[in-house]
Design a binder for these strands. Structure first.
Length: 584
RNA sequence: GCCCCGUUAGCUCAGUCGGAUAGAGCGCUGGAUUCCUAAUCCAGAGGCCAUAGGUUCAAAUCCUGUACGGGGCACCA
């Protein structure tokens, strides 16, 4: 209905414009639901926006528009109000259509099919594979996952990718950590450096490798143990230890690194699965370092291209990328004096790879502590002659965990962080997802553990799910031979004209637009608030009205209404990856 | 110092690419249940939309400055 009105309105304006030879075809007018019922169902600011161009007062223009709009089907009344708003009063009959639509479309209601589908890549989580996911990763995981399903609901093709940082210093430290724990299994006393990973999972991994390798990986050189001693509390010492292993124990290091990576990745995958997060692509950073037959590695190729495009120079023994030419604060090193490419260099190659895979949009979900990193990545994309506008980054702020109103310490030092798996076990995947996305991503979030578990209206997710369960409960209470009969219901829609019944129909009709807006703004939280509003109107209605009555006509029309509510809640929660339980 | 984000009711937060009288929950006060889930509902009180300017017919919303809070500024990943 709203779309139809918007179209008619625009046609009318163009027609009026033509009379005075003024082109209004690209003017942007707005038509929106009214908060205040006295102003009708919809209102438009069209007359106020166009009045100046036509040298008319908004009121006069509005009068003209209304004359032209008269006689449109479904409109009961048109009014001019305030400084020149055009208010639309819709007939009850035209509101009923949404109920038939929902019944016909079912699970598809609100889900768009587009002919011009966009191919979108969302990369998210991408936590270092050096330990299990903790609650700091949870928000990004929930956000990316919901965003993917939201963009799909909006008619696009979406790939979800996890970038595995399986190359570099963190992996080296991981390998050393495991090796040291491994050695300790022989009751050999040795210093365990502060900068090594402290969690108990390292010991588990070491044990596993210990069994498989039959304890053959212990370095035999006393030099090694001296280095470890030195690494106890100095970063330098740790670095020396790492490079010693790299030189002397290449084969063993590889075995340990590979098994540790495999082990941790499988844990991460399991955690994500429990959380309803499903990446369909796992991209390994290490693959960017591998030669491709006769060709250089992806990183070398990318750096060569930058060089050919004249954005590379040498200084202080290092190789730099001129990111300042694209607005970055300073130029960035891509190859260290020791000739190793930096992390940034592999990220350049990674983004180039994404572009080569021909996506229309490339979306990254990053922690907001990385925002300073974006200008250089955008710069590199531009320098590689790619369209940097295709790259969008959504920044996700950290979440605080609250228990009994107190902040739960999230120190990652000493490995005392809370694992995502523990959070899911405590509050459940549904609540965790909902609370993580209940706020705009770039804002701080207090995740209240007690609230997430509470079974009352204070808990917005419970409130929404309860509305769904209530409808299901009514359906259960019907006599055995009774059920929703769409034919009877359709003939009696004119019984649904109570104030709250109309409110419900209006709210239900907004759902497709909510999906669309939420998707286009990359803001999933909009859906949470929409569903809460819908549930609220429903609960209020339910309290006022008895659904089950002896009057078959009335019963059927009401059943259609409440089942529409049930369907939309189900669809909305579905997009969020959350269950809609039939009883609670 | 530079950059990003935020500031809306006592608290936690919404607020439709600028629109008519700024909303919700909690908390507070007072009510509703012989009845489909009271796990709910209804009513009341509560606001200088941080602040000072600017743009506009119209600003919580856009622009600039200021204050306060959070984060970021590596040959780390």
């Amino acid at each position: 209905m709203k779309d139809k009105l918007a179209e008619k309105l625009k046609e009318t304006l163009i027609k009026i414009g033509n009379k005075s030879h003024i082109d209004l075809s690209d003017i942007r007018i707005e038509i929106k639901e009214n908060k205040d019922k006295d102003f009708g169902d919809f209102s438009s600011n069209a007359a106020m926006v166009c009045a100046k161009k036509l040298s008319l007062t908004p009121i006069d223009l509005a009068k003209d528009v209304i004359e032209n709009l008269k006689g449109i089907e479904g409109i009961e009344k048109l009014e001019i109000a305030g400084p020149g708003f055009i208010n639309f009063f819709v007939t009850n009959t035209s509101r009923f259509k949404v109920l038939e639509d929902i019944f016909l479309e079912g699970d598809k209601y609100g889900i768009k099919t587009k002919t011009d589908q966009e191919k979108i890549l969302i990369e998210y989580v991408s936590s270092n594979p050096t330990g299990p996911l903790h609650i700091g990763h949870g928000r990004g995981a929930a956000f990316g996952s919901v965003l993917a399903s939201l963009l799909r609901a909006n008619g696009n093709i979406v790939d979800e990718e996890y970038y595995v940082n399986d190359h570099g210093r963190q992996m080296d430290i991981l390998a050393v950590s495991v090796l040291l724990r491994y050695i300790q299994l022989n009751d050999i006393e040795l210093y365990y450096p502060d900068d090594c990973y402290q969690g108990d999972y390292i010991k588990e991994i070491a044990k596993e490798i210990f069994v498989k390798s039959k304890n053959k990986l212990v370095p035999q050189s006393s030099e090694f143990f001296e280095l470890v001693k030195k690494a106890k509390d100095s970063e330098e010492g740790l670095n020396e230890t790492i490079s010693w292993i790299k030189d002397e124990e290449v084969q063993n290091l590889k075995i340990i690194k590979d098994s540790a990576l495999k082990n941790i990745l499988s844990v991460i995958k399991l955690d994500l699965k429990e959380f309803g997060v499903n990446h369909n692509s796992w991209f390994h950073e290490s693959s960017l370092y591998k030669k491709e037959g006769s060709k250089n590695s992806k990183i070398e190729q990318a750096l060569e291209t930058l060089q050919n495009n004249n954005f590379i120079y040498e200084e202080d023994g290092a190789i730099w990328f001129k990111s300042t030419e694209f607005g970055d604060d300073k130029d960035r090193v891509v190859r260290r004096a020791n000739e190793d490419p930096t992390y940034f260099a592999s990220d350049i190659a990674y983004h180039l790879d994404k572009y080569e895979r021909k996506y229309d949009r490339v979306i990254n979900i990053w922690g907001s502590d990385h925002h300073g990193y974006l200008p250089r990545v955008k710069a590199s994309v531009s320098a590689l002659k790619q369209d940097e506008k295709k790259l969008e980054v959504v920044f996700i702020q950290f979440a605080n965990l609250l228990r009994s109103g107190e902040k739960v310490s999230m120190s990652t030092r000493g490995g005392e962080f809370i694992e995502l798996a523990d959070l899911i076990e405590e509050v459940g995947s549904d609540a965790a997802r909902f609370f993580y996305i209940n706020r705009k991503g770039d804002q701080h979030l207090d995740f209240d553990l007690d609230l997430a578990k509470e079974q009352s209206k204070d808990n917005p997710l419970f409130y929404i799910q309860y509305a769904h369960a209530r409808v299901c409960s009514v359906m259960q209470k019907l006599n055995k031979n009774q059920k929703l009969d769409i034919n009877i219901a359709k003939k009696n829609l004119n019984l649904l004209i109570g104030e709250k019944e109309i409110d419900l129909q209006k709210q239900l009709a907004m759902f497709p637009e909510i999906i669309e807006r939420s998707a286009s703004k990359l803001e999933p939280h909009t859906i949470c608030y929409y569903l809460k509003d819908l549930a609220s109107i429903f609960h209020s209605y339910y309290n006022d009205e008895k659904i089950i009555t002896d009057d078959e006509n009335l019963l059927q029309s009401k059943l259609l209404l409440i089942n529409s509510v049930r369907q939309v809640i189900k669809n909305g929660l579905g997009v969020l990856g959350i269950q809609a339980p039939e009883s609670m």
